[in-house]
Design a protein around this nucleic acid. Structure first.
Length: 572
RNA sequence: GCGCCCGUGGCUCAGUUGGAUAGAGCACCUGGCUACGAACCAGGGGGUCGGGGAUUCGAAUUCCUCCGGGCGCACCA
């Protein structure tokens, strides 16, 4: 249940009636406890329009608002705020009768989400971290709210570099079964191939012929290419598993998949009279984008040599997603440097009618990961950090930390906890920052058990589990009623009921850090409650009430972390 | 040159339909374990929200301008 929406709807109705025209209540969580649980901020602007005293209008409104059984007190404050205190019964009933933490949103849609999309010519590196885990989280959130989610891993599996790689491979072996072996270190393989390509004209010539053969569909080349792609993909799959990201080979829809459709895109644009030839290249000019001289900027869809570009492929993908996959929304989780590219492609796609009326296409850009020095994140030697190495290091560091904190853990438990904490820390550090900005990658900060980190949240969860073990609790025997005697219990109850609100917000804006902030707030709120309200030693009714709060907190933390792609541990 | 993003305590970050006294965490200082896990909690100091204008009941948030940093702008992806 979404309490904010419920209040928004009721109070908006009252304001609109009073104003004689539609008006919004502008509901938000109260900024401070003494201002109640929720506050309506919409009265002031309405009063202005009506040329009325805002406090009088608010007072009148308070009389007419129907919130029986939901709120126990409404108060006009300041220049015209309406502060709302939720009723104790409402809180108790909502928590106890809640069958599931999250319910489906009113309108469920088909949502296509494009994320991860590594280049298969190389190994995955830190540059793929953000798109992969942000995309995974958003996919989980949308799925949880009942949407039909179609993941699209638009891998780079086509283009000139594969001519080079396949030629280099050919010189190593012509046995497809040996590819696994040769590509064990894909990064080195790529470097070696590139070195030969740059230094040996004869090799470069063969590489170019190989590209032509590949694009012409030469059977033998295609077979080798396919094997190469599969091997490289299995590297990615290893990373996805280590990251606990819900991407499978079924989600792969690489650049090559659109190869046969590119000519059709050109023909389609031609037929729609959007195509212009300029300097031998086929372009579409968009007035809304201008170049250095203030002239319209072209989107080149076919090079003067006849080759296609990634703009062409992206257009084909857009058309496919709306016409074949029947997307209502298409999301792109791709880095900020590509903002202009997507603006152009989306504008062009709209012009070409690739996006049906009422459908939505959005780019959700993200910033870069920086080192502690504020420079782009890299290895000590200055190279690009491989994602696999980074994840291994996270697990290693977490292992050392957890082993030191809790020496009684067995090796097997320790391994599992280190994995959950280490990978969780990396993901959470990323997801908890506003997606749009850059952020600084800091091992000590993300692995700290204090502050807004994965370890702190996991600790809060495991501490609740520990309480249940200690009390030997059987929830079938727990009386279903929540009594909010203290402010700690009250705050916790209200926070718990705000879960749906924040998840819907994340689904709308694709900003997972809002969920992180919520969970951290919830965990802190729980810790305060826990320190001040004895649970097991309280008298029975109160003890039961508090146990329900504990249980709901644990469930919400677990569900929330799941939506971030982070699993929980029962002890740590 | 044009366009986009960023600038908030010493550090890392919240603050997105304009709302009440700009919030957390780290670090620093003080207090709390014979105690349901102190990996915690309670409290304290620390801010001209890059500068300056404008809009209004009200601006970190909107607009303009300047400064500083990053990125992108025709045949790579």
């Amino acid at each position: 249940m979404n309490i904010r929406d419920l209040l928004e709807e009721r109070i908006s109705k009252a304001i609109s009636t009073l104003a004689g025209s539609p008006a919004k209540a502008m509901l938000a969580r109260s900024s401070r406890p003494e201002f109640g649980d929720y506050q309506a901020n919409g009265v002031m602007s309405v009063a202005k329009k009506l040329k009325r005293n805002p406090r009088d209008l608010a007072q009148e409104l308070v009389q007419s608002i129907q919130l029986d059984g939901i709120a126990e007190k409404l108060e006009v404050a300041g220049p015209g705020f309406i502060n709302i205190w939720l009723s104790k019964n409402f809180l108790s009933d909502s928590l106890c009768n809640q069958e599931q933490l999250l319910t489906n949103t009113a309108h469920t849609e088909t949502v296509v989400i494009d994320y991860s999309s590594p280049n298969l010519a190389k190994e995955m590196h830190v540059g793929h971290l953000r798109t992969t885990i942000i995309g995974d989280s958003i996919a989980r959130v949308l799925t949880q709210l009942g949407h039909k989610v179609i993941r699209q891993n638009h891998v780079g599996d086509w283009g000139t570099q594969f001519g080079m790689l396949l030629t280099y491979m050919q010189d190593q072996t012509d046995n497809l079964d040996e590819y696994d072996n040769k590509l064990a270190d894909l990064e080195n393989f790529y470097r070696a191939a590139k070195a030969r390509f740059d230094s040996e004209p004869e090799f470069a010539r063969r590489a170019r012929t190989r590209v032509v053969a590949l694009q012409a569909g030469d059977e033998e080349t295609l077979k080798a290419w396919k094997q190469f792609i599969n091997t490289s993909l299995s590297h990615c799959q290893t990373i996805y598993q280590q990251l606990d990201v819900q991407l499978s080979p079924d989600d792969v829809m690489g650049e090559s998949a659109y190869n046969d459709d590119l000519q059709n895109i050109i023909a389609d644009l031609q037929q729609k009279q959007l195509l212009v030839e300029s300097h031998g290249a086929k372009c579409v000019f968009l007035e809304e984008f201008t170049n250095k001289q203030g002239e319209p900027l072209p989107v080149i869809v076919q090079k003067s040599d006849g080759g296609f570009l990634y703009a062409t492929t992206d257009l084909a993908a857009i058309r496919y997603r709306f016409s074949k996959l029947h997307a209502d929304r298409a999301l792109y989780i791709v880095g900020a440097p590509q903002i202009l590219h997507f603006q152009q492609i989306f504008a062009l796609a709209k012009k070409a009618n690739f996006i049906p009326e009422g459908c939505e296409i959005t780019h959700h850009p993200f910033g870069s990961i920086l080192g502690k020095d504020g420079r782009p994140f890299s290895t000590r030697k200055g190279g690009v950090e491989k994602l696999g190495n980074l994840l291994d290091e996270a697990e290693q560091r977490a292992y050392t930390l957890v082993a030191a904190k809790n020496p009684e853990l067995g090796e097997e438990d320790l391994r599992l906890i280190a994995k959950t904490v280490g990978i969780g820390a990396i993901k959470y550090a990323d997801l908890s920052k506003n997606r749009t900005g850059d952020y600084i990658f800091d091992w000590d900060q993300m692995l700290s058990f204090e502050g807004n980190t994965a370890p702190y949240l996991l600790y809060a969860y495991s501490r609740i589990q520990s309480l249940f073990r200690r009390g030997n609790i059987n929830f079938d025997e727990i009386k279903a009623e929540v009594i909010t005697t203290t402010t700690y219990e009250h705050q916790l109850a209200v926070n718990l009921l705000g879960f749906q609100e924040v998840v819907e917000l994340v689904a709308r804006d694709a900003l997972p850090h809002q969920l992180c902030n919520y969970l951290f707030d919830l965990a802190s709120c729980y810790m305060r409650f826990y320190e001040h309200c004895p649970v097991l030693s309280a008298e029975k009714t109160l003890s039961h009430s508090r146990l329900i709060l504990c249980k709901k907190t644990a469930e919400t933390l677990k569900a929330g972390l799941y939506l971030l792609g982070i699993s929980t541990v029962e002890r740590m």
